[in-house]
Design a protein around this nucleic acid. Sequence first.
DNA 1: TGGTTTATCAACTAATGGGTTGAGTACTTC
DNA 2: GAAGTACTCAACCCATTAGTTGATAAACCA
Lengths: 134, 134
Amino acid sequence: MQDTIRTAALDAEDQLNRAFMALADPVRRQILARLALGDATVNEIAQPFPVTLQAISKHLQVLEGAGLITRSREAQRRPCHLNTTALGPLAEWIENYRLQAEERFTRLDELLAETADQDNPEKEKDNEHQHNHH
Amino acid sequence: MQDTIRTAALDAEDQLNRAFMALADPVRRQILARLALGDATVNEIAQPFPVTLQAISKHLQVLEGAGLITRSREAQRRPCHLNTTALGPLAEWIENYRLQAEERFTRLDELLAETADQDNPEKEKDNEHQHNHH
DNA sequence: TGGTTTATCAACTAATGGGTTGAGTACTTC
DNA sequence: GAAGTACTCAACCCATTAGTTGATAAACCA
């Protein structure tokens, strides 16, 4: 039970690791850019790059392992398809931190407003303050 | 001139590389989680981790190189501060792909709706390149 | 001054990542 | 079956990375 939870959590962590790692390589980001225009085979993907087909094949395995692409069969060809849903957790993670920072500001706002209310109740909230805390 | 443009573009690419790479490590993500609660010194950051202070120091250098944190001086201490603005380009990059995928769908929808109105007898030509969607 | 705290630098090791070449698999076509 | 096409697997090379220990710098305290 807790094992499943723990392993699930670890798997989620691992997926984040793999996805961020996969995106850290410019070649792989270019591959995703290509796939954003439509599905493509390994040869089609490899064509513009100055590296061997095998290198691209490895990159595709990394992207697949990160869940960023899926691959099907079509005779000898292995068409690759961009899986944008895998970007969800990444966007979520990033936005979480951006919002967390926002929350810290708003919480500070609330605190300031609250202490201000004690002196000055029924005052309308005007936000848009600059906060400098170091 | 063009050199500056080109190098600027390369620098932006490089910043994406570094930021994604920095986030690919769970220790560094935990460090950011800690800093989201407030600024902290190197010792404070290192305390919960089962690695040496030097290892954490290196991680902080990586995070600083990626622009994800900033560091000031305070006597002997080097308080670290989370820089959430550096997450902007990452979120932008990711959302770009998510929106691009959305656009493809809506554009496809429009195309289908358009061709559905006018009966289009033209058959799909067999060109060697991409024509894959599901 | 000498000693303590805080953090970094330097050198090394072990593991990983991106790249290569060469052989092997799977499917199609002749 | 033989040959061609599309890709993957396996072994290796080289650069980088995460970690270590040990020494050093820099600011404070006594």
